[in-house]
Design a protein around this nucleic acid. Structure first.
Lengths: 244, 244
DNA sequence: GCAACTTTGTGCACGCCTTCACAAGTGTCC
DNA sequence: GGACACTTGTGAAGGCGTGCACAAAGTTGC
């Protein structure tokens, strides 16, 4: 019924097709998936949009609209069959196949990522760990041997890896991404605090720890009556700005 | 000149004031700050919006509009004075004061966060590390002694902590957040893969590692001609759906 | 002091996302 | 079998963010 993807003929040249699902919706699908998984584990069979929305932390209208982009998987008057919906979303995201992932940079963060259980349980398989430091080569992390960066291209090729996770220091991020892309990786998750450029067709997502804290700090500063947080210097500046 | 905050009288009840700077702009300020810091280190004195935008990975019009919310800190025909602008943004975000932060959950990720250099260099001071496991209590991490969760409220009070970082397992996230809030924390950065609810007035940001990967997987699945990625089962489902 | 050039700051239009509100189904109870 | 209660799916409206395009403002060279 809603397969009217013919009228939406403005594919926005620079952006990949993305069938019909808005980007904002895609970003929320993993959220729904998690909420549904929790419901399955509790043995719940059906759920209304209201309940599911609450446990996913969103508005119920938004949830229904999001799901409507995937199809009509609910039953009016009843709700959604939990297990069925979970499977549909899982398939839409592409979690029914397993994705081989390489982690580059096995420092503190790389360690944490390699050991993070949330990946394996969601269809992501850490297939290779790579570090530039020869001293780390051979070390076992999360049951996997750390390989030297020299082998990066070889590993990507042999293990058919399409997704790379970058957890290197900032200055190494761009060269590493270049090599990943050259070797055939088309999706990169970057944890390094650096802005990296990738060619068109490669998806790049960024997780920046200190950026998140800074955004919090911005709002924090504006609570409790901001005046409380002003230093003498800042107060002087403020006064100057208001009067001048 | 642009201090016409009187006409914008629709403060959106549920949302905190947020003087006049759009949320999307706030989220980019740390980006600009980083780019400016890099310029300072290279000894660059002035920079045009075009250059700064490029090195921050955004559009120059967007950069100028963003900066215009903070004030008129540029010089037409010249550009922005790097050090001055950096200071202004820093002040706007609230990085001129130092923020005491507590990290709850010293597992792999907590370790990585405690050792992450990017916090200290940006006005965030890791003031306390807390873990529920008595075996970890007393352990030294990043030069700080890990304390037991029992001491959480005491530490928050004594050290005047307003920002909490949660790196616990999923099931512990909500109780921990509740305790943080009860003890006076008003900003929380949550790394646990769980949806947590906080009362109004408390800012909550979420960093979810597997969500990011799932978003990448979604797009990855749609590259290379999605048909390639279909399993027999999925193909059958698809055929069924199309034929009805 | 004037003309040519550079770069900022912003009004405006467009598009995406969110939210409301309701018609269209579905189950239940009598 | 019909009335009622419930819930989905979606048209439409409003708000927010982006990017264009240009006026305003400053600099340089003569």
């Amino acid at each position: 019924m809603t397969r009217t993807s013919s009228s939406t003929e403005t594919p926005t040249p620079g952006v990949p097709p993305a069938r019909g699902v808005p980007e904002a919706t895609v970003a929320r699908l993993p959220l729904y998936l998690r909420a549904l998984t929790a419901l399955v584990e509790r043995g719940v069979a059906t759920v209304s949009s209201e309940e599911l929305a609450t446990s996913a932390g969103v508005n119920s209208a938004k949830l229904r609209k999001d799901l409507s982009y995937l199809g009509s998987y609910g039953t009016r008057g009843v709700g959604y069959e939990v297990d069925f919906l979970r499977h549909q979303i899982s398939r839409e995201i592409g979690l029914t196949q397993d994705w081989a992932v390489v982690i580059v940079g096995i420092g503190n963060l790389g360690h944490a990522l390699a050991n993070y259980g949330g990946f394996a349980s969601r269809g992501f398989r850490i297939a290779a760990l790579v570090d530039a430091d020869p001293k780390r080569t051979g070390e076992k992390v999360a049951g996997l041997e750390v390989r030297h960066t020299d082998e990066l291209e070889q590993l990507i090729n042999d293990l058919d890896i399409h997704i790379g996770v970058v957890a290197t220091p900032a200055r190494a991020a761009q060269p590493v991404c270049d090599r990943l892309v050259a070797a055939g990786v088309t999706s990169i998750l970057n944890f390094a605090p650096a802005i990296v450029q990738v060619p068109e067709g490669v998806d790049l997502r960024k997780v920046d720890l200190s950026t998140e804290l800074q955004i919090l700090a911005y709002h924090e500063q504006r609570k409790n009556g901001a005046a409380l947080a002003l230093t003498a210097e800042q107060a002087a500046e403020l006064a100057e700005a208001v009067n001048g």
